[in-house]
Design a protein around this nucleic acid. Sequence first.
DNA 1: CACTGTGAATAAATTCACAGCC
DNA 2: GGCTGTGAATTTATTCACAGTG
Lengths: 208, 208
Amino acid sequence: MEYYIPDVTIRRLPAYLRLLGELEDEHAEIVSSAEMSRRTGFSSEQIRKDLAYFGAFGTRGVGYRVDFLQERLRKILGLDGLVAAALVGAGKLGQSLARYVQSQHRSIRISHIFDIDEDLVGQTLAGVTIMHTREMEETVAESGVRLAVVAVPAPEAQEVVDSLARAGVRAILNFAPVFLKPPQGVVMKSVDLSSEMRSLVYYARKCR
Amino acid sequence: MEYYIPDVTIRRLPAYLRLLGELEDEHAEIVSSAEMSRRTGFSSEQIRKDLAYFGAFGTRGVGYRVDFLQERLRKILGLDGLVAAALVGAGKLGQSLARYVQSQHRSIRISHIFDIDEDLVGQTLAGVTIMHTREMEETVAESGVRLAVVAVPAPEAQEVVDSLARAGVRAILNFAPVFLKPPQGVVMKSVDLSSEMRSLVYYARKCR
DNA sequence: CACTGTGAATAAATTCACAGCC
DNA sequence: GGCTGTGAATTTATTCACAGTG
């Protein structure tokens, strides 16, 4: 058991969890780090090292029990119970995200949706009634939600993020294509398809 | 000018380009690495080092010319002309992606869309007529497209990626939540919202 | 003088290599 | 014998610190 675990390790855990799901479907009971390496593309040493941060989960000479490792990783990530998440922005992207999260994640639930557009307020999206953004800070603070997805236009994003931080949110997945100052104590991950596409153009054009 | 440029550097270039766009809108003519650092969150040394891989673009004691640096970065990334990209998978996600790319990127154009569903073939999406996936390999090879976006169900993704590689595609943005073996000579970047969300749950729950 | 460009120093991440154990 | 867990070695990335220059 370690104190500080590097972010690169945390970001690989969901991949391991996905693999364990596949292995479970195949009724595999035991898996070695070599097999996990073959299937994920990560090196076996890296996988062993990542897992060892949290304890000794495997059996020397044998491997890792699929069900046990799955359970431990779920617990480590906080996916063993039900996690509530707020969604801010119910435009086209927000709507897609709401439906996607609700359908794909057994343990993550969109509990609140906020938008600044009065026409959207009161409508239902993915089983949740859209509220006005002005109610966000108080509502989120009261409900104790710690995770949020931001899908608002770029100019509004910083304000939304700051407000979410004041409401007690600890982690934010941001889709606004803008540079945001992460508030103190908040972990933020931005997803920007434009940037991903653009960096790939570099490789697409490179002659080899 | 360097031979090999690390991927971390390439992936930061689109962020610099975005900032330069903002600066252009503000009619800034010159920008220093310190100012760029303040606005992007990357350290100024890192920015200078990244840019210096490609040559000496700045003026000592002054800074970088916004328009010149923008032009150079566009050129380096390959965004100075028009880049064609193929989209495979015209389901819900594919449709959103097609519209998004066509509307957001001046220099990236979706030139071909493929799907395996006969009902979709012949329909128009974002100004492009959907073709059947069976025509993909030949069509892509003939057209010389080097960049592709894959938005097909997980079980089909590896086959699609391999086929694209044979057709000469060099860079792929993959949305299928599955482990893929990158074919020889192809740079692949996978976007998986589930994994992003799940790793954030870890931080949302952590007490600090 | 202010800011770039860059070697040198440091920190972080990965890989090696093997002891320890089932 | 085979595979985990882990220090040591290596590689990669970042930061420092300053010489060079308009």
